[in-house]
Design a protein around this nucleic acid. Structure first.
Lengths: 222, 222
DNA sequence: GTCTATACCACGATAGAC
DNA sequence: GTCTATCGTGGTATAGAC
């Protein structure tokens, strides 16, 4: 941020980040020690604290590096779709697609297994440490507002408040699905129904679109 | 389990459990040390290991004590509804209600703040430690199967596989909503829109019912 | 500025005395 | 069944070399 990075510092810093990302995705944030990371990266233990301030700082950096481009692509795809629609409200499925697709695209683009990336994303939002979640949530308001606005135009029978809540439901379903991807077999009793990322992506869009488009809560009260 | 519990041992064990539940809900599973728990409970540090084997064992016990009654009530409410329907398929909203209500009932019944309980439930499923999630998932197949069957009857146009996946989406949305309840203000950009448990409960049912009832994935493919 | 060596304190776990 | 003492490992802070 403040200093012009020399080659050496960039090397050390990125080496830490690369290894950390790998190990965090594989074993979780607090199952991986700084000693493990620094040994694997061939750097000194204290350099983590030097470059990132703390372990949490390192975690935050890893999170940022993954979430920022996804959110940027979301806004970009949404803007594209809106430009193409020329003022007309978008189909809800289209809106959902721009929200969901960047996540799966990133998952497939990640070198190595896609499962690793999914677990990392899932871990971020599902983390029990409030500070970690807060870091992830920090990037969200802008994205949230854009989708809320788009949905308001497409679903004029619903209030912004209701749509806001439903956006949270949507994000929750997505995140939790990613988190449980690797142990779906444990919770599904059926015989080896394996659910892969492609299936998930294909099935989640109609679910979300229908949920978002549901009648007003008051209309279906028990 | 194996030994007949004496008064003293029960006292120590339950005292640990009570304090642990409180502190876990408040600060998270690994933010609370065994020393913190045992000091607060007025028992010796080693007694946790004696009664629960490990910290993870204690966590598992706390989880079990919360999830088991919720899942029992789910099955009970579902069975009641099915008995009342006399063989006819249930309304999807009814099914969703039996799934969601026990969670919120438990949240409101918890002495102290309801937020604490919500966070605990959220933490269990959102935990980054796979072993913790696996413990929670262990109780699920039975519940999962019952709901999958009920939904198949109510939504005959959908396959069990699709409904199974949507059940996961539903559970995910619920869990993640609980987890983020206390920091919704951070992610929602609007001016102080506070979302309380009652609102959440009221709004989540139509969302889920509509999502579950959505057309087959193939029908709405892009 | 960048990096290293090292010391510190809190944690979970366990062995063995009582 | 309960306690004390202790072990290995964790994150963190700092003094000082380059």
């Amino acid at each position: 941020m403040t200093e012009a990075a020399t080659e050496a510092s960039v090397d050390t810093k990125t080496r830490i980040l690369t290894v950390a990302e790998e190990l965090f995705a594989e074993h979780g944030f607090d199952a991986v020690s700084l000693r493990h990371i620094t040994t694997e990266a061939g750097v000194n233990l204290a350099s983590v604290n030097y470059y990132f301030g703390s372990k949490e700082g390192l975690v935050a950096e890893v999170i940022s590096e993954h979430c920022a481009p996804i959110n940027r692509e979301r806004l970009s795809l949404l803007a594209e779709a809106e430009a193409a629609a020329e003022g007309k409200p978008l189909r809800v499925e289209t809106i959902v697609d721009t929200f969901v697709s960047p996540v799966f695209t990133a998952a497939e683009a990640a070198d190595g297994s896609t499962g690793r990336f999914c677990r990392l994303v899932g871990r971020v939002m599902g983390d029990r440490d409030e500070r970690v979640r807060a870091l992830a949530a920090k990037q969200f308001p802008e994205v949230f507002a854009a989708y809320q606005e788009a949905l308001c135009r497409s679903l004029p029978h619903l209030t912004p408040e209701v749509l806001g809540t439903r956006l949270l439901f949507m994000a929750g379903a997505l995140v939790q699905s990613l988190l449980f991807l690797d142990q779906i077999g444990d919770v599904m009793p059926g015989p080896g129904e394996k659910v892969d990322v492609a299936t998930l992506r294909h099935q989640i869009i109609p679910f979300m679109a229908a949920g978002l488009s549901a009648p007003r809560p008051d209309d279906s009260a028990a």
